[in-house]
């Protein structure tokens, strides 16, 4: 790649923060780039109409409703046996058939969406809290604190997260809790980066400067003025991560490191049901389709919020 004089400066910065080992160069990260992890769109032209968010919100609203009232909607419990017997084909009595134990697949998916959603949310929240705290401290204090904290973050960022997660779970033994801990361990650095970047950028803005001059304490400054500004990109990243996490859970279940049975976790259901793919395809395919829908909804929402935020900033 050659450098042209025409190249806008943002591009250089765009390339900086995600460089892997010892990305000391990343100390002055502008906001949009941190969203790049796994193909997060950065700023884009406000080409879309303002109501896109609402379009994307509809599936998410439906989803939330499902999650909320899943136990009511589900004709059977997650571990309850449907009287039609094990491995029954889809029928009016069992909409998505039954699994090898005779449990109702439709009910398990409804409840599974809840489990998977909460599992993903748990990892993401934990990641946000740990990462946000570290990022906020680093961003607000700057200097040596920033350097040390970001070096540690870089260390974690430089390691292949999925491989590490596998090793961690293999060491601790598979259980939903251990899986979530392992995923959180490898997930937080991205949030630390984003929050720190946003905080740094916002700290340089006039309103923060003004607050500083007015004698506002540093903690108050961070809490009141800087962190809220970092919230938007964090939310975008969070929504996009839901799909990634559910897929990660599915992959881990496939190699025997996922949520233990009989937890109705979508990834685990699909992975464990894979052996029935040819004789009783509904067992693995129905939960996989639910995973895909969930990921799709989360992705669309994330993209939409992102574009919406974009419009706000470009205006």
């Amino acid at each position: 790649m050659t450098t042209t004089t025409e190249q806008p400066p943002t591009m250089t910065e765009g390339a900086v923060p995600v460089e892997g080992p010892g990305a000391a160069a990343a100390r002055e990260v502008p906001t949009p780039v941190a969203r790049m992890w796994r193909g997060r769109p950065a700023l884009s032209p406000g080409a879309l109409k303002g109501d896109t968010v609402w379009h994307a919100l509809i599936p998410v609203a439906i989803l939330s409703l499902v999650i909320l009232i899943a136990p009511v909607l589900a004709p059977y419990g997650a571990t309850e046996v449907n009287p039609v017997g094990p491995l029954a084909s889809p029928s009016p009595d069992a909409w998505f058939g039954t699994d090898e134990i005779g449990r109702d697949v439709f009910s398990r998916i409804l409840i599974g969406i809840r489990t998977s959603w909460f599992a993903a949310l748990g990892v993401i929240l934990l990641g946000t809290i740990i990462g946000g705290l570290i990022g906020a401290i680093a961003g607000a204090f700057g200097g040596k604190v920033d350097m040390v904290l970001m070096r540690v973050t870089d260390l974690f960022l430089s390691l292949p997260a999925p491989v590490l997660a596998i090793a961690v779970i293999a060491a601790m033994g598979p259980s939903l809790r251990n899986t979530l801990i392992a995923l959180s361990i490898v997930w937080w650095p991205w949030y630390a980066r984003i929050v720190r970047g946003e905080v740094r950028a916002l700290a340089a803005r006039p309103h923060a400067e003004a607050a500083k001059l007015a004698g506002v304490s540093r903690t108050r400054l961070v809490l009141k003025h800087l962190l809220p500004g970092a919230a938007a990109p964090v939310i975008v990243t969070m929504s996009l991560d839901v799909g990634n996490l559910i897929l990660a859970l599915a992959g881990l279940s496939f190699i025997g490191l996922g949520a233990p049975p009989p937890a109705p976790e979508l990834g685990a259901m699909s992975a464990r049901g894979l052996q029935y793919l040819f004789g009783h395809p509904w067992v693995p395919i129905a939960p996989a389709a639910a995973v895909a829908l969930l990921a799709l909804a989360a992705n669309l929402l994330g993209d939409a919020i992102n574009r919406r935020l974009d419009q706000r900033t470009t205006r």
Binding site: M1, M11, T12, G14, A15, V18, E19, G20, V33, M36, W37, R38, G39, A42, L159, P160, A161, P162, V163, A165, I166, G251
Partner: peptide, 17 residues
């Protein structure tokens, strides 16, 4: 540039995959 960086990062994902 960003796409290149992203490609480098994706190697980590692939190694898990």
């Amino acid at each position: 540039g960003p796409a290149l960086t992203m490609s480098g990062l994706q190697v980590g994902l692939m190694l898990g995959g």
